[in-house]
Design a protein around this nucleic acid. Structure first.
Length: 463
RNA sequence: GCUCCGUUAGUGUAGUCCGGCCAAUCAUAUUGCCCUCUCACGGCAAUGACCAGGGUUCGAAUCCCUGACGGAGCACCA
C-alpha cells in the first residue's frame, strides 16, 4: 500500500488518516508501506522543501515507518518512457487546443482535430515537449480514452503538460514537461507493485481514468477504496494546508504548532500521542461518506495512555491573592499521583497568603478545603484555618479546591486552543522537565514545553 | 447540464453482500449514583439511531422502486 502525499506543506490532522490506516493494515497483514511524494506540480501545488522531512517525521510520530520512500520528481524519465510507449500503442496524442476549447468539445462529446494525428507526429511533438521547446499552456499529451464516454470526466484526459517554473528540488529543476497525477500515479502504482490503494472520494474518477492506461499496457489495476472527507470538531480553523499557511503568514497563528491550528505539529506539542490519533482515525473506518471526528475521542484515547504517568501539580489561573491566617500546617504534601503512593509526595510550603482561582472562591463566611493543606473559612480578612478534619469534606459540606502559595510559586503560561492563560504553579513544577506530561489538578493534562526565566510554558492537552 | 457515490443514537462504528439469532453492537459524549482531600482514574446506571414512502416476503436496518437530503468529479491541481 502507499501513502502518496503532496509535499506542499506540513500535515494537518486529516492527513494522519492515511498513514494510520495503511500502517495498521500493513502490520495486520504483513504488507508494506511505500511513501511516495507526488510532487509533480511545481506551480499550483508547489512543493515545500521542508515538508518532505516533516511528513516522514509525522508518519513516525503516528507510530509507523515507511518501508520505502520515493519522490515522483526523481522519476520523470520513467514517466517519459511510459508516455512514449503509450504513444506507440496509439493510446495518446499531443493536443494544442486551448483548455477552454477542448473542454467545450469534450462536453459535447466531440473529438478535437488533433485526435487523429499519426503516432509519428505525436511522438515528435512529445519529444519536443520533453526538450522544453514549448511554453506552459501551448500543448499537452492526452490519453485517448472514449470521447463519447457517458462520464465527461473520463474523456481524453491530460497526461502531461508544460510548466515554465522550475521545480524547487535541484535534482528536478531542469524538467519542464510534467506528468499529471493520473498518469504519474497510475504508472508508479503498477511499477512499485501496489496492491491496494486507499484515497479520497475526490479521486473517485481517478481510478476510472487510470484503467484506460492499465488497459493499454495490459496491467491489472490494484484494489481501490475511496473514503470521504474528515472534519474535526473543536477547531475554528478550516483544515486546509493553504488556509493554515495563510493564517500563519498573516500572524493570526503563531506557526504550524500553534495550539489553535488543526495540525499534527500542534497536537504533538500539546502532548497528544501519535498512537492516540492513529487509533481514533482507525475507528473512523473507510466509508465514502464524510465523517466528523470528535476530538473528545482522541482525548479519551490519549488519557488512557498518559494518566498513569502524569504526576499531579497545582496551577492557579488568574489567581486571586487571599491572606491566610490561623493555626495551620507550614506545608502541604499531596501525593504526586493518587494511584501511586510509591512516587511520594510534593512539598508545597505556605506562608501567609495563597492564590486561588476566582471561580473557586467561596461565599463570605463559608468554608473551603485547600487540598492537602486544610479547611479554611473565608471572610473579608481572608482565609482562616478552622481546624476541621477531613470528615468535613467526607460528609459533603466542604468543597476541595486547588491553590498555590503566594511565595515560591512559579509563573506559568498555559497555551490552549482558546488562547493563552497565565497563572502560577506550585514550586516543584519548576523541577519538571520539558516534554514531560503533567496533570494540573482540576484543570487537565498538559505538556511541559519549557522553563524560561520569565515564565514556564505548558501546552494544554485536554481535560 | 452530464456522471458517480452515500444516508444506523450528539459523534464514530458493528450488522447490510448470503432477509429471521437485531425490541440493533461497541466506543466516545452527556446526565446521575458510587469511589475519592482533583471535575483524573475506576465501578454502576440512564439517555439516545436503522432518511421518507411504497413494493416483494410468513418475516426487511438488510432485497427492489420512487423521493428527499448530503457528498464528489466533469482542471494543462493533488
Amino acid at each position: 500500500m502507499r501513502c502518496a502525499p503532496n509535499p506542499n506543506g506540513p500535515w494537518h490532522l486529516g492527513h494522519a488518516r492515511m498513514p494510520a490506516v495503511i500502517g495498521t493494515y500493513k502490520e495486520r497483514y504483513d504488507g508494506s508501506m511505500l511513501c511516495r511524494f507526488d510532487d509533480t506540480d511545481p506551480e499550483t501545488k508547489r512543493p515545500d522543501l521542508d515538508a518532505y522531512d516533516a511528513i516522514l517525521d509525522a508518519i513516525e510520530y503516528l507510530g509507523f515507518e515507511a518501508d520505502e520512500v520515493i519522490r515522483a520528481s526523481d522519476r520523470v524519465e520513467t514517466y517519459y518512457e511510459y508516455a512514449r510507449g503509450l504513444i506507440e500503442k496509439d493510446g495518446a496524442y499531443t493536443c494544442t487546443c486551448p483548455a477552454e476549447t477542448f473542454s467545450e468539445l469534450k462536453n459535447s462529446g466531440e473529438a478535437c482535430p488533433h485526435r487523429e494525428k499519426g503516432v509519428e507526429e505525436s511522438m515528435d511533438e512529445f519529444e519536443a515537449m520533453v526538450d522544453g521547446e514549448y511554453d506552459a499552456g501551448e500543448i499537452v499529451l492526452r490519453v485517448r480514452t472514449d470521447i463519447t464516454h457517458k462520464n465527461p470526466a473520463l474523456r481524453d484526459w491530460v497526461a502531461f503538460r508544460m510548466i515554465d517554473r522550475p521545480h524547487p528540488r535541484e535534482e528536478a529543476a531542469e524538467y519542464r514537461c510534467w506528468p499529471m497525477l493520473d498518469f504519474q500515479s497510475g504508472v508508479d502504482d503498477h511499477l512499485t507493485g501496489i496492491t491496494h490503494i486507499v484515497r479520497g472520494i475526490d479521486l473517485q474518477d481517478s481510478a476510472k481514468r487510470q484503467r484506460f492506461l492499465y488497459e493499454y499496457f495490459g496491467w491489472e489495476y490494484p484494489e481501490v477504496i475511496h473514503w470521504g472527507h474528515v472534519q474535526i470538531d473543536a477547531y475554528d480553523v478550516k483544515m486546509s494546508t493553504s488556509r493554515i499557511k495563510e493564517l500563519i503568514e498573516t500572524g493570526e497563528l503563531d506557526g504550524w504548532d500553534d495550539p489553535r491550528a488543526p495540525t499534527i505539529a500542534s497536537v504533538r506539542r500539546r502532548g497528544i500521542h501519535g498512537e492516540a490519533l492513529t487509533e481514533a482515525m482507525i475507528e473512523l473506518g473507510t466509508s465514502t461518506t464524510d465523517v466528523d471526528l470528535a476530538m473528545s475521542t482522541v482525548y479519551a484515547k490519549n488519557r488512557e495512555r498518559i494518566d498513569d504517568g502524569s504526576d499531579r501539580y497545582f496551577l492557579v489561573r488568574d489567581g486571586k491573592r487571599i491572606d491566610l491566617s490561623g493555626d495551620g500546617p507550614d506545608a502541604a504534601e499531596p501525593p504526586r499521583h493518587p494511584d501511586h503512593e510509591e512516587r511520594g509526595t510534593r512539598e508545597i510550603p505556605v506562608e501567609d497568603a495563597v492564590l486561588v482561582e476566582p471561580v473557586d472562591l467561596p461565599g463570605e463566611g463559608e468554608r473551603i478545603w485547600l487540598k492537602g493543606l486544610g479547611c479554611v473559612r473565608y471572610s473579608d480578612e481572608g482565609f482562616a484555618f478552622t481546624g476541621d478534619d477531613i470528615d468535613a469534606v467526607r460528609e459533603g459540606g466542604v468543597d476541595v479546591i486547588h491553590w498555590v502559595p503566594e511565595e515560591g510559586s512559579v509563573p506559568v503560561r498555559l497555551r490552549t486552543m482558546d488562547g493563552d492563560s497565565e497563572g502560577r504553579a506550585e514550586p516543584e513544577f519548576a523541577d519538571t522537565e520539558a516534554d514531560e506530561m503533567v496533570q494540573f489538578e482540576r484543570i487537565g493534562f498538559a505538556r511541559v514545553d519549557e522553563h524560561a526565566d520569565v515564565e514556564s510554558v505548558a501546552y494544554f492537552a485536554h481535560p
